[in-house]
Amino acid sequence: MAHANTAAPEGVPIHVARVLSQDVPLEIAAAGNVEAGERVDVKPRIAGQIRNVEFAEGQNVTKGQLLFSIDRDTMSRQQAQQQAELERDIAMEQQAVAVAARDAASQKQSQSEADVAVKLGDLGVLSGQSVKQAITASDTTRSSLQADQAAIAAAAGAVRADHARLSQIKLQLNFADVVAPIAGRAGAAMVKAGNVVLENDTTLVTLLQLAPIRVVFGVPEQSLAEIQRLSAAGSLEVEAGTGDNRLVEGHLDFIDNTVDPTTGTVRMKATFSNSNQALWPGQFVNVRLRLRVDPRQVVVPQSAIQQGLEGKYAWRIQSGFATMVPVTVLRTYRPTTSSQPGSEVAVLGSGLSPGDVIVTEGQLRLTPGSRVSPIDTPSGP
């Protein structure tokens, strides 16, 4: 006689995870744009012909590194001419000093003779006409000495002017070497050897500082008060995710002084060390501004949360059977260790406890009390 098949029915295949308790960061997500820490458009400070381009396009340059050299021939000739004028004016000043010394001696002698003539005139030894002649001669030599002193001052002024012009020419000669004002990455050279450039007119090359670098992003104005309060207490962490899933960390260092009325957001900036050059000027990145960390929160994979007519719920597994459990979801977030779609985590306010086993895939085939057959070992979100 045949026996009936008494094997237990197989359960619904499902994927499961275990409810965890962990610290959960409160973050604001935004789209950001990378901008250079500094940008400098290098322009010539003198006019002239480019003699050499001294760097490679796209090269990292250091502050003070030679970038371009401008032809010096014209200014060298001007320097030689000005040096000759300086030497001539120095000689004229020396000549004026010598003449003044000679006239000072003559004035001293004529003054002495005039003094003696006056005394002899008082005694009746010299006539009044002779006394007048001696006094006139003394006055003439005094006037000549004053003229000599004026000539010395004029010659000294000419020498000072020559020195100033010579110093200006030497300064311009130094400007013939165009050096990097900052350390950064050089863009394309806008001129080549042989091109003629004008003073403060032509942009020779643009330098961008890549380390450190900044990311600009906007956050909703509703979060402004809390961000201001927290940033006053200490630097807030900012994380930027690039297109190749690299994550870099920086800190918030700028909050704009106005709200954009068209978007309702506040512009902010974060600085990143960017030592590995993961961020590039003009690049779009995903930004997360971390406000705080909430300790010991109950978390589950977002895929475990279902929406029913009476609200959100999850399937809890006990002794091989599924039970529908209402849950309260406070918020969701994506862990920094994962950037894959579907990796979001739900933070629960009620309904489940750490250690519970819940269903993450296969819920559509479940009904309350269904027997289940987990495909995998329970793990955390």
Rank of each mutant, 00 (worst) to 15 (best):
2 A>K: 14
7 A>K: 15
11 G>E: 11
13 P>N: 04
18 R>V: 14
19 V>S: 04
22 Q>P: 13
23 D>A: 08
25 P>V: 05
26 L>D: 08
29 A>W: 15
32 G>V: 07
32 G>L: 06
36 A>C: 02
44 P>N: 03
46 I>T: 04
50 I>D: 00
58 G>R: 01
58 G>S: 05
61 V>P: 01
66 L>M: 09
72 R>W: 05
78 Q>V: 06
82 Q>K: 13
83 Q>K: 13
88 R>S: 12
91 A>I: 08
95 Q>H: 14
96 A>V: 07
99 V>E: 11
104 A>H: 14
111 Q>V: 08
112 S>N: 13
114 A>R: 01
124 G>T: 05
126 L>G: 09
127 S>P: 11
154 A>M: 09
154 A>S: 12
169 I>V: 09
171 L>E: 07
172 Q>D: 10
174 N>A: 12
174 N>F: 12
175 F>Y: 13
176 A>W: 02
178 V>D: 00
179 V>F: 06
179 V>H: 10
183 A>C: 04
183 A>E: 11
201 D>I: 05
207 L>K: 01
207 L>M: 01
223 S>F: 02
226 E>F: 00
232 A>T: 10
247 L>D: 15
247 L>G: 13
247 L>K: 08
250 G>D: 05
252 L>V: 06
255 I>F: 01
258 T>D: 15
258 T>Q: 14
259 V>W: 02
259 V>A: 03
260 D>C: 01
260 D>H: 02
261 P>N: 00
263 T>N: 03
263 T>H: 01
271 T>V: 14
273 S>C: 08
274 N>E: 07
277 Q>N: 13
286 N>A: 13
286 N>C: 05
291 L>W: 01
293 V>M: 12
294 D>R: 10
294 D>N: 10
316 R>A: 11
320 G>F: 11
321 F>G: 11
325 V>T: 12
325 V>Y: 02
331 R>F: 05
332 T>C: 09
333 Y>R: 12
333 Y>V: 06
336 T>P: 14
336 T>V: 13
338 S>P: 12
340 Q>F: 07
340 Q>G: 06
348 L>I: 00
358 I>F: 02
361 E>D: 12
370 S>L: 02
373 S>V: 08
376 D>I: 00
378 P>N: 08
381 P>L: 06
